[in-house]
């Protein structure tokens, strides 16, 4: 039997601005360990919102969320912070690196926070991750001085630093050319096949979506397929 990496049941969420309306309507979702899932749908249908809920960052929802068989709904802020730090890697829709730090430091920081490895080992791993995306030359450059695509690749490297069980991406390849998109895709696929990491990624790239294991299509806050 395959393990369930993430299980969401009955997720409903409302926004109240300017009027109360449901963004997510009773969403049930199960993702198995090692699965590579793409979420697609029209702009504004609630993909990012769903991803924030699944990543435990957004706690303002109805329904239940389990990560690696553990109930995340109702956990304390500190417990959730630990879950994110150790088990979830997140690539944001807009890259969101820390501008005061070098690329290397940006990748290292979640690893240092986790503290499982020595700073030396974390640094070594960070270099390895940067190398995978071909940005190791930029390691010591201040992150605010990178191009959009470069920043995005560093951000993906950061998401991988703690070898998280689940990697979530909100259009992680949105800024990348086709060559780099392929690199990222191949890498994601390798992670799921070889290391049984789970990937959930929102994408507008049909090609990318079709190559993944499963496509979840959303419309108006509901999963339609």
């Amino acid at each position: 039997m395959e393990n369930i990496a993430l299980k969401a049941s009955g997720i409903t969420k409302y926004f109240h601005d300017p009027v109360t309306f449901p963004v997510l309507k009773n969403i049930d979702l199960e993702v198995k360990q090692g699965e590579f899932v793409s979420i697609v749908g029209k702009s504004g249908c609630g993909k990012s919102t769903l991803l924030y809920v699944l990543s435990t960052m957004d706690r303002d929802y109805e329904g239940k969320l389990e990560i690696n068989g553990k109930m995340a709904t109702g956990s304390t802020l500190n417990e959730l912070a630990y879950i994110r730090n150790s088990s979830i890697g997140f690539v944001f829709q807009f890259h969101y690196l820390l501008p005061d730090f070098s690329c290397l430091k940006n990748v290292m920081i979640p690893g240092l926070r986790l503290g499982k490895l020595s700073p030396k080992e974390v640094e070594h791993n960070a270099y390895e991750k940067l190398k995978m995306f071909g940005v190791e030359d930029l390691a010591l450059k201040q992150s605010s001085k990178l191009s959009g695509g470069q920043q995005q690749r560093v951000a993906i490297a950061r998401a991988l630093i703690n070898d998280p069980a689940i990697i979530m991406g909100d259009e992680p390849t949105g800024n990348l050319d086709s060559k780099n998109t392929r690199i990222v895709f191949d890498l994601f696929q390798q992670l799921t096949k070889e290391f049984h990491q789970t990937i959930i990624t929102v994408t507008h790239d049909d090609d990318f979506a079709h190559k993944s294991d499963r496509i979840i299509e959303m419309a108006d806050g509901e999963i339609v397929k």
């Binding site: 990543s55 960052m57 802020l77 500190n78 912070a81 630990y82 879950i83 994110r84 730090n85 150790s86 979830i88 997140f90 944001f92 969101y96 690196l97 820390l98 501008p99 005061d100 920081i109 979640p110 926070r113 986790l114 950061r158």
Partner: peptide, 16 residues
């Protein structure tokens, strides 16, 4: 504030 948000998103607790 954005960077604080990123730190928290990547798993920094309130205490950190």
């Amino acid at each position: 504030i954005k960077e604080i948000a990123i730190l928290k998103a990547t798993g920094f607790s309130g205490k950190s």
